[in-house]
């Protein structure tokens, strides 16, 4: 079953999301990746004013390619989320309620999502051309000097994501692998950690 959400996200919306749920997002979301997160958190640490109000919002980890003439944005698929893990707690404290990326989060972040009642979505990595079609407008709202790493406000319509971590501590990757693993390994598999 497909769920539809529009930010800002409140508890009622977040409580309804479970790992594996397919969700379509419509509305305004923001982009940020490594360099923008570094600035966000430096600003928070100095008790400064963030360029965007994070309360109830969704951040999409993406650095799009430049738009060709006649296009609103270039290719725009998710980047690997774990690089943003060490910035997560201050972002969540500032009111962030969801992130979109690809790949797993460190176990520390899975715990933080529970603590701050926030979710982590994944979009299909490498499907940048296809996902760009769900983006209806894009404008830079902060850190223009960062080029592809600037913060964009995106207007999305039916942007397809899957819940990878919910507010209950669930993790889609653990579940998936458990179901399909057909080999016994002589070593322990550790998730890399940035927290």
């Amino acid at each position: 079953m497909m769920k539809r959400i529009t930010p800002p996200l409140d508890d009622r919306i977040l409580e309804d999301l479970r790992i594996g749920d397919k969700v379509l997002i419509t509305g305004k979301i923001y982009t940020a990746r490594d360099a923008a997160h570094k600035r966000f958190v430096e600003t928070i640490n100095k008790s400064g004013q963030l360029p965007i109000d994070l309360r109830g919002q969704i951040i999409y980890y993406v650095g799009p390619t430049p738009a060709k003439p006649g296009y609103v944005i270039g290719s725009a698929g998710p980047t690997t989320s774990i690089r943003m893990d060490s910035y997560m707690e201050p972002m969540l404290k500032a009111g962030l309620k969801a992130t979109i990326g690809k790949g797993y989060r460190s176990w520390g972040v899975v715990e933080l999502l529970k603590k701050y009642k926030a979710v982590y979505f994944i979009a299909t990595g490498g499907a940048g051309a296809l996902l760009s079609k769900r983006i209806k407008s894009a404008r830079v709202v902060a850190y223009e000097d960062l080029g592809p790493e600037a913060v964009f406000e995106l207007e999305v319509e039916d942007f397809p994501v899957i819940v990878a971590n919910d507010i209950y501590g669930g993790d889609i990757f653990e579940e998936g692998v458990k179901k399909y693993r057909e080999i016994t390994l002589p070593f322990k598999i550790e998730r890399i950690s940035e927290v």
């Binding site: 993406v62 650095g63 799009p64 390619t65 060709k68 270039g74 290719s75 725009a76 698929g77 980047t79 299909t124 990595g125 490498g126 499907a127 940048g128 051309a129 296809l130 760009s132 079609k133």
Partner: peptide, 19 residues
């Protein structure tokens, strides 16, 4: 989705992936 994506990228001459 991967197949649709590479077909779209080729037909519209867009990068397959943003990275």
């Amino acid at each position: 989705q991967m197949i649709q994506n590479v077909e779209l990228a080729a037909s519209e001459e867009l990068p397959i992936c943003q990275d």
